[in-house]
């Protein structure tokens, strides 16, 4: 026992020294790494943000970043200071204390206040992000499957043909009514083309397992759940550019490569892209005056959307 302890006294100084360097090493490392990966001039290493809601997300990320950074520095700083300051020294006994109730109360209430404030603020932003999509928004049906994406844009009427998630089959991937003339007018493609500056409302569907709609630059993640329509995701792009839609929910062998191109383009370019396709589809079917969705069908869609909100 004597032997172990004397060996440990030797270790004592080096240990505290090393420990300090170790923790600092970690923080320096991270700082270095972060700056090496600095993108578009921010210290957080975030990819550029191209949606209005994304800016709100970023703002709270920054708040929490600085809050936690502060807590990190304060707690680890004090901790390392104690580790060095109170290392074992000949003739200096430890202070005999079982605690202090005032301190306990302080360090229970203080974090509680901080955390509750954070929760309230978070949820306020959460609500703002999830207000109902504006009237003028472009609605796109995004359908996911093992392992790819398909988008459905409204036809010439400006309205998507109604669908029912229960009708989705491999033969009818969007669950639309083949009898309905509006169905044939929908524009279907594999790229997500979006006009800049206009709110875009996506209806998320899945044909088999759970996939997810994830675009880092949009700061949006939302699972697509089979058997349901997820109808609360909308965003408004702030700049043009090409991005990638990623599936970020493990969905099988091809999951890692389940992506789709996203093009954010100007309104004019968007019309140039969409209108010819709409017209082509319109030419294929004789437009009929009773193309409006039957009320029963429309109701069944909303039914399902609401009923399954666990």
């Amino acid at each position: 026992m004597i032997k172990t302890i004397s060996r440990d006294i030797l270790n004592k100084r080096t240990a505290s020294l090393f420990l300090t360097t170790g923790v600092f090493l970690a923080s320096i490392l991270s700082a270095g790494v972060a700056s090496a990966e600095e993108r578009s001039g921010n210290v957080y290493g975030l990819p550029p943000c191209v949606t209005t809601t994304g800016l709100q997300v970023d703002s709270i990320i920054k708040i929490i970043f600085w809050l936690t950074a502060l807590v990190f520095v304060l707690t680890q700083g004090t901790y390392i200071y104690y580790l060095i300051r109170y290392r074992r020294r000949e003739g200096v006994p430890a202070h005999y204390s079982h605690g202090n109730n005032t301190l306990e109360i302080i360090w229970t209430t203080a974090p509680t206040i901080v955390f509750l404030a954070l929760a309230i603020y978070s949820n306020r932003i959460w609500e703002q992000i999830h207000v109902t999509a504006p009237e003028n928004s472009l609605t796109i049906d995004v359908s996911s499957y093992q392992f790819g994406w398909q988008m459905r844009y409204p036809g010439i009427s400006g309205k998507l043909a109604p669908m029912d998630v229960r009708k989705i089959t491999p033969q009818n991937p969007f669950g639309t009514d083949p009898e309905n003339p509006a169905t044939a007018q929908d524009v279907i493609c594999t790229d997500l083309v979006i006009p800049v500056g206009r709110p875009v409302h996506v209806l998320l569907h899945s044909r088999d397992v759970i996939h997810s709609f994830y675009v880092p630059e949009f700061r949006i993640y939302q699972d697509c759940v089979p058997g349901r329509t997820i109808g609360w995701v909308w965003f408004q792009a702030t700049q043009t550019g090409d991005f990638q839609l990623a599936c970020n929910q493990l969905c099988g062998t091809g999951h890692y490569n389940m992506k789709a191109p996203i093009h954010i383009v100007s309104e004019a370019e968007f019309q140039k892209w969409l209108t010819p396709r709409q017209q082509k589809n319109a030419a294929l079917v004789q437009p009929s005056p009773i193309a409006a969705p039957s009320p029963a069908k429309a109701a069944s869609l909303t039914d399902r959307t609401e009923k399954n909100t666990l």
Binding site: Y82, R87, R89, V92, T108
Partner: peptide
Amino acid sequence: VSTMVIAVPSAIKTFNWMGTIWRGSIHY
């Protein structure tokens, strides 16, 4: 909200760990 609240007891524990080594005779 509940998730934020559950971080509080962890905070209590962290601070008490620091209290434990405070004015100790730390033996590495």
